[in-house]
Design a binder for these strands. Structure first.
Lengths: 208, 208
DNA sequence: GTCTATAACGAGATAGAC
DNA sequence: GTCTATCTCGTTATAGAC
């Protein structure tokens, strides 16, 4: 493996190095407790290293936060690409998309960017931009699926594909948000199924 | 006005006294920044009083938080009662319900309990219970409206009314959550309209 | 009911040795 | 890369005067 690849993986926190482990722990803590609900001390203790070492890898909490979103978004993009490679129709792609959210919830976590959306007003500017970009990316991918589904006849919706994509992202994030206090994944599934059904073409259109 | 009423109003923060003003400021700060995103110092400075005075009215942040949810839930219940008095069908009641959320969002705020749901894992136990109770109350009211709508033929949905209520609460909370970073209320409205339409009976049923 | 003062703790961050 | 030690500041909370 060339040095460039190694450096790139390290920067992205995809290898098994310390930076990667820091991101793993911090990511879980943010998804569970929020960006304002964890500290460098929490991460350091869990990894058995000092707070000072954290600052070597990530200058400050803001930079750590940026790296968290970047890696999370990158992984999500990877999952979306993988779904695109499957020989399935658009409706099934939508179901696979919803399952990504369900997988996060089954690990007792909130979507990283959904959590950060709640804390949006307290975030440093670079993190804010990254959160919005995450949602933009999600919706751009969904627009492609929705257009495909409308063409092939598996999906049906009124308004623009962009609007429909916003409805889907909001619906899934909200289902995660409200489900977590109840600790019952079935609750999420009901909302997700309803949402998907409201875009399916195999039932008569209902959204005027 | 009798002493009992006065004491009760004071306890609930519905009069214009100091406790009420503290709740007003704290409520806005939590809805904007989250429970872990504001401090006693923030509230004290805005009101021009000392932090120590805050502790006279609310022993600690946890007690302030409980009082916040209690008052918020109580006001919300009042709004639901008011909707119930209107001579309108269930579908219109559902639209009025969604408008309550839209009103919050137009003030740039997140639903108090939606915000607290994100921070759920970091909340003191009494606050957690109060948050869950809030959602339970919302859904109980919605169940009544949904049953009415199904009987009178203005609403249509598959599954139990309870499940439908969960879908509605999650959908509205999620639309608020994702809309706020964009600062565009129209985004919320699109999601809310879609949600309402998916339960309306004037279009053919689509949720299997 | 409100104040000043301060305690007690935790947060993010830095210096400099190893 | 990682450490110990330290700094500075913010946060919650309390004591006690007025």
């Amino acid at each position: 493996m060339g040095k460039d690849v190694r450096v790139a993986r390290q920067a992205r926190g995809t290898d098994g190095g310390t930076a990667s482990k820091i991101l793993d722990v911090a990511e879980r803590l943010v998804q569970l407790r929020g960006f304002n609900g964890f500290s460098y001390a929490d991460v350091a203790e869990e990894l058995g290293i000092s707070k000072a070492s954290l600052h070597y890898h990530f200058a400050g909490k803001a930079e750590l936060g940026e790296a968290l979103i970047e890696r999370y978004a990158s992984r999500f993009t990877g999952s979306l690409d993988e779904i695109e490679t499957r020989p399935i129709d658009a409706r099934a792609k939508l179901a696979a998309y919803a399952k990504l959210y369900g997988d996060v919830l089954r690990r007792k976590r909130m979507c990283l960017c959904g959590m950060l959306a709640a804390e949006y007003q307290t975030l440093p500017k670079p993190m804010r931009s990254a959160v919005v970009s995450f949602f933009d990316d999600q919706e751009a991918w969904l627009v492609g699926v929705l257009d495909q589904g409308r063409e092939e006849g598996t999906l049906r919706f009124s308004g623009s594909a962009s609007e429909a994509a916003q409805v889907i992202v909001g619906g899934l994030e909200g289902a995660m948000l409200v489900t977590r206090p109840y600790g019952d994944p079935a609750r999420f599934q009901i909302a997700a199924d309803h949402l998907l059904a409201s875009f399916a073409a195999d039932a008569p259109a209902r959204v005027s």
